[in-house]
Design a protein around this nucleic acid. Structure first.
Length: 510
RNA sequence: GGCCCAUUCGUCUAUCGGUUAGGACGCAAGAUUUUCAUUCUUGAAAGAGCAGUUCGAUUCUGCUAUGGGCUACCA
């Protein structure tokens, strides 16, 4: 590997970026950084039919959120600009014509309708139509038409395409960094369209090979769905005489549905309640889809989870920062088989990152939610509340249910807890606890606990009954952190007020 | 249908001819706890099948089965 590493992520702006695409981008990025190379973002918008406005911006924003940095691309420019294929259209025709001149390609004048009827005819006979050596000389192509007629048709504005002239019966030997050696006989392949006059645009295969060559791409890391077209790509490099600088290839395993078969799709996410897109998406037609960001996932957790879906470090480490991923990544450790996406594991990763966040980090993330609930507090208090409860949270959004009692006195009480504790001697004991608390000056967690526990033991009262009754008054429910976390947080005045509220407003059950 | 790729616990995976087949998620049980959680401990759980190579196969080869991808003037 003497050549500088240059990899590209080359999505098509036909909709929101799927998490499988994010993983492809991530592996490209990790590989680039691992080898001190460059990461290129190229937009492959050669399909004018499927173009979706907003998709490109979505892709760029997604990569940013994930922390995948682009060195050259549509936003940052670079030595091989432009990086949008629709802005490079004049480049491709030249190369397509070069192939025609070399005898590696030819003009074909069949219309899409004609081909469709041909396909149907074959199908009705139980055969499969393939545009290949067996049929190309019976169709309207520059292979059989006289040169002047070809010229005339083009000049008169007939629509044409340029097709690759697939060699007959030849074994193409290929190498994949993940799968090893692969061989295919060209007789099973067809004459792919390389360029179409209708929109003066190349198809994926031509544009991809030409741009990878021009942009000096050293490694092509892409999804397994491209493996079947690898022989064509090898042959294109040969046809152009670019074999010396042909990139190495690595085809990544697919991301599969959590249950059943097939690739992960948008519908799965909607059905099973997890996102398949990094960001919330709203299509021009008004359809929406959930995103990891809006659903409360941390980008670090999302990336960590994705990195381990199809790659492993060979050790038992599971939590990786982006830098650690870069330091450890290698294509050799990418698995060959498809990985089933597991929503539960994604949540687990998020919880791990939640538990490791500092109070200050939590405060910054939690403040917007507090404000949305009309709570105005200092960052210190927001962070402290979040820090006390973070172990029980998976998402930042879980924190409100977990910590709201720190900021708002209970207005109603859980029925079950009321029946269990607001009876017998407990109300009387709570009155006594109130007096004990009222006598404490230093309301710190440690001091309050020492005094109250000492008092309970001295009186010989049942600890569980006392504490849960107090919990009922302060939290209003049978959950929450240690009671002294609550008392020290809300302070003496508020503690006494909440106890008074319960004593005065709610009649004990009998 | 054709071509290609894959196949270890339910899931993600470790193992690069010799292991009691390891870890993680999830699940179950127990411990801890003033509640709810958390946490900790323990447990159940796997080499698709059949041949072959070999002293010895999860690991190598072949076949079968299963899963997946591709088979557009889409990427």
């Amino acid at each position: 590997m003497t050549r500088p590493v240059r990899v590209r992520f080359a999505p098509s702006p036909t909709g929101p970026l799927h998490i499988g695409g994010v993983r492809t981008a991530l592996y490209n990025y990790l590989f680039a950084r691992r080898h001190g190379g460059k990461m290129i973002l190229r937009i492959e918008d050669t399909d004018s039919q499927r173009f979706v406005p907003g998709a490109e911006a979505y892709i760029i924003e997604s990569l940013k959120w994930c922390g995948i940095e682009i060195d050259e691309g549509v936003e940052q420019g670079g030595p091989h600009a432009p990086y949008r294929q629709s802005e490079r259209r004049e480049i491709y025709l030249k190369y397509a014509l070069q192939l025609v001149e070399n005898g590696w390609a030819y003009y074909a004048f069949d219309t899409a309708d004609e081909l469709n009827t041909l396909r149907k005819e074959y199908e009705s006979r139980g055969e499969t139509f393939a545009y290949n050596a067996a049929v190309r000389e019976q169709l309207a192509t520059s292979l059989v038409l006289p040169a002047d007629e070809v010229r005339a048709r083009i000049d008169r504005g007939d629509q044409w395409v340029i097709r690759f002239k697939m060699p007959a019966n030849e074994i193409v030997k290929m190498h994949d960094l993940i799968r090893g050696d692969v061989e295919v006989n060209t007789s099973t392949l067809d004459d792919k369209v390389l360029y179409k006059s209708a929109d003066a645009l190349p198809t994926y295969h031509l544009a991809n090979i030409v741009d990878d060559h021009l942009m000096e791409i050293s490694h092509v890391i892409r999804g397994e769905e491209w493996l079947p077209s690898l022989p064509l790509h090898y042959l294109l490099y040969r046809a152009f005489g670019w074999e010396d600088t042909q990139p190495e290839f690595a085809h990544l395993p697919l991301l599969l549905k959590p249950t059943g078969g097939g690739k992960l799709s948008k519908r799965d996410g909607d059905k099973m309640g997890f996102p398949v897109f990094p960001l919330f998406w709203k299509s021009p037609t008004g359809e929406t889809a959930h995103g990891y960001r809006e659903d409360g996932y941390f980008p670090e957790a999302f990336i960590n989870m994705l990195a381990l879906l199809g790659w492993n470090p060979g050790t038992e480490q599971e939590i990786f920062s982006m830098q650690e991923l870069i330091d450890n990544f290698s294509l050799e450790r990418v698995s060959k088989s498809g990985a089933r996406f597991q929503p539960d594991k994604a949540k687990w990763f998020n919880a791990q990152y939640m538990h490791h966040k500092s109070d200050a980090e939590l405060a910054a993330l939690y403040q917007p939610i507090l404000r949305a609930h009309g709570i105005e507090v200092s960052d210190e208090r927001a962070g402290r509340a979040a820090g006390i409860m973070k172990e029980r949270a998976t998402f930042i959004t879980d924190l409100w249910d977990l910590t709201s009692f720190f900021f708002i006195a209970p207005t109603e009480y859980e029925e079950k807890q009321l029946r269990k504790y607001w009876k017998g001697e407990n109300p009387a004991h709570l009155r006594e606890v109130r007096e004990v608390l009222a006598s404490i000056d230093d309301f710190s967690l440690e001091n309050t606990e020492r005094i109250v526990h000492g008092w309970i033991e001295e009186k010989g009262y049942p600890m569980g009954q006392i504490m849960n009754t107090l919990r009922l008054a302060l939290v209003g429910a049978g959950k929450g952190p240690g009671m002294y976390d609550v008392t020290s947080f809300i302070g003496k005045e508020e503690t006494l007020r909440r106890i008074d509220t319960l004593l005065e407003k709610v009649k004990p059950v009998e």
